[in-house]
């Protein structure tokens, strides 16, 4: 509390991170970058959870740990998801010799 930072500062950072991640997903062509941007959006959500946990104290003066528990779940799931996601990307590259999403259009038409 000494630093003068408030919940709004954290939420703003978190929103900025999420927006950057989303924009990256929408406009980048390299699928690995898109994947990293997705992780960025997850991190933004994690930051929000931690911030709410820290600033939402209980009657005993302690942080609300519900948010932090959820955070750990997300980190665990995200780790597993990265493993699967990267495996898919490797398989895709082997099949198509490209990681450019604009080239991967076999579902179209």
């Amino acid at each position: 509390m000494d630093s003068g930072l408030t919940l709004n500062h954290f939420l703003a950072i978190s929103g900025a991170l999420f927006a950057i991640g989303f924009a990256g997903v929408l406009i980048r062509r390299n699928i690995i970058v898109i994947f990293m941007c997705l992780e960025l959006m997850l991190s933004a959500a994690n930051l929000t959870l931690v911030a709410f946990s820290r600033f939402n104290t209980t009657e005993a003066g302690l942080p609300d740990y519900n948010g932090q528990v959820l955070l750990f779940f997300i980190i665990t799931v995200a780790a597993a998801e990265v493993a699967v996601g990267l495996a898919i990307i490797v398989a895709l590259f082997r099949a198509r010799q490209t990681i450019d999403v604009t080239q991967i259009v076999s579902m179209k038409n």
């Binding site: 997903v25 991967i104 259009v105």
Partner: peptide, 14 residues
């Protein structure tokens, strides 16, 4: 709407 572009879908979803 069916562009076949994943990113367009993602944009619409968002």
């Amino acid at each position: 709407f069916q562009t076949g572009n994943v990113q367009a879908y993602a944009f619409l979803f968002g």
